[in-house]
């Protein structure tokens, strides 16, 4: 169940309360998020939509511990992250968040295998254990046969699959996807989206995704719109969302 008011049950995987984010541009203050509330349970697949500049990516950054809010709190699996130090946040991200970016953001000088292995370098796993995990992840995303290829030798869709494998390799608490299909053609976009859906449906992953594309958003269980700094349910509500007190 996803709620966007402040009456979500305690114990949600992700609890956002009264989140404000204000940017300062010169003398001007821009309120991007204003008292935003959100509750997401384990296994939810949420799509955030909204016009450019509405704060979708800002929200994702706040949920992922990449940025700090002006006010409010973000609690993930019981950890209140908004007051964590930079170092603690980094450790927290390594354990709890898998990132999937629009531009894939693979390291160009590393092979697909090495890119996927990166998060595991922060663990105590042995080399053999890392290899096993990476091979499994690459199998899941369907690019095991490309593990020794460099990003420049892969198609956009394959690159994004490798990025997905990198995001899931450390078995994070949830995945944050920022326009995961924004740089892909329709066929590749569909393949990547069905992969993400598989992660939710077969592996029980929790996914929060920002997208401009209604077709992509439709793949999610819930679509939320970001308007004037707060989340509102999409006109086309599909299932399991409660807002403004309705459920």
């Amino acid at each position: 169940m996803v709620r966007v008011d402040e009456r979500g049950k305690s114990g949600s995987l992700i609890e956002v309360r009264g989140l404000d984010k204000t940017y300062r541009r010169g003398n001007e203050e821009i309120d991007v998020l204003q008292g935003l509330n959100l509750d997401v349970d384990k296994g939810d697949f949420v799509a955030f939509m909204g016009p450019s500049g509405s704060g979708k990516t800002t929200l994702l950054n706040l949920l992922g511990g990449l940025d700090v809010p002006t006010r409010g709190s973000v609690t993930v699996a019981g950890d209140e992250i908004t007051h964590m130090s930079r170092g603690k946040l980094t450790e927290w991200r390594a354990r709890h968040v898998g990132f999937i970016f629009q531009m894939y953001n693979l390291i160009p000088v590393l092979t697909a295998f090495q890119n996927v292995e990166l998060p595991l370098l922060l663990t105590k796993l042995s080399k053999a254990e890392r290899r096993k995990h990476v091979e499994t992840a690459l199998e899941i995303v369907g690019v095991a046969d490309r593990m020794n290829h460099f990003p420049r030798q892969l198609s956009g869709g394959q690159e994004q699959r490798v990025a997905v494998a990198r995001a899931i390799i450390a078995d994070p608490t949830f995945l944050l996807c920022d326009e995961p299909t924004g740089d892909l053609d329709r066929k590749s976009a569909d393949e990547v989206m069905s992969l993400i859906r598989r992660l939710v449906e077969e592996y029980g992953k929790t996914v929060l995704m920002v997208t401009h594309d209604p077709l992509v958003a439709r793949q999610a269980k819930i679509t939320l719109h970001l308007e004037k700094g707060v989340l509102v349910e999409a006109g086309e509500r599909r299932e399991g969302v409660a807002a403004g007190g309705s459920s």
Binding site: G87, T90, R93, A94, F99, F101, I107, P108, L122
Partner: peptide, 13 residues
């Protein structure tokens, strides 16, 4: 951007 990605996925400063 690559350094940013490393930090995002958990590499410390």
């Amino acid at each position: 951007p690559e350094l940013a990605v490393l930090k995002a996925i958990g590499f410390s400063d």
